[in-house]
Amino acid sequence: MRASTLLSESLAVLGKELTAELRSRVALNAIGLFGLTTLIAVAYQIGPYQIQEQDRPYLLSALLWIILFFAATSGLSRVFVKEEDAHTAKTLRLAARPLAVFAGKYLFNLILLSALFSLIVPLYCALMSYRVRGVAGLAVVLAAGAVALASTSTIVAAIIARASGSTTLFAILSVPLVLPLLVMLIQGTRAAAASAELAAVLPALQGIVSLGGAVLTVSVYLFPVVWHD
């Protein structure tokens, strides 16, 4: 019998990720710089005044998620790829339960995404004069989006780390899984921007939460297979 509990093991993995990340800052730098660069390029070249009034709800919500998604793609696959690159994967595999590894890495990616969202979204709203009527609605959509995006990217990262470990493969495998999610996130953001009612984001939110939940549930079963084989 194991003396450690799943929770303490997961937290140990998360703690290790955070300590290592705070010392190297590779993922934070990659995601933050990628996000800021695309944001500045968009804000500088398009800005608030280059978009026709009737197009604003559509373009602004889509642009926001393009920036967020591509910034996230540059950093989220690292959680597993770095373990394989540094040859620590096998050491970790032998020491920890697969579920604890998945939970720790998932939470770490969730924290990274939350950091990215809280950096980019306010800046984006300010630079693009994006008036969001339902701030609470947007916050809920963003939170659900972080939960769902973290689940797809964590399991896909686990798969590609065991394959070639390339970011290209990460993008190829993520796109078909993430596309429906991105569409729903853009719809949810558009709904939140247009209405102060929390109920406005509900249709998109249902889709986002159920997709994220489904992927997370399946990942819990698939991860041990991916991690061990």
């Binding site: 194991r2 300590t19 040859h87 050491t91």
Partner: peptide, 21 residues
């Protein structure tokens, strides 16, 4: 196999010890 380069020797052992209960 390798241990974590960002962590010290003691931190590495503490981490693996915690994982193994």
């Amino acid at each position: 196999m390798a241990v974590y380069e960002e962590l010290s020797a003691i931190e590495n052992l503490r981490f693996f010890g915690r994982l193994r209960g």
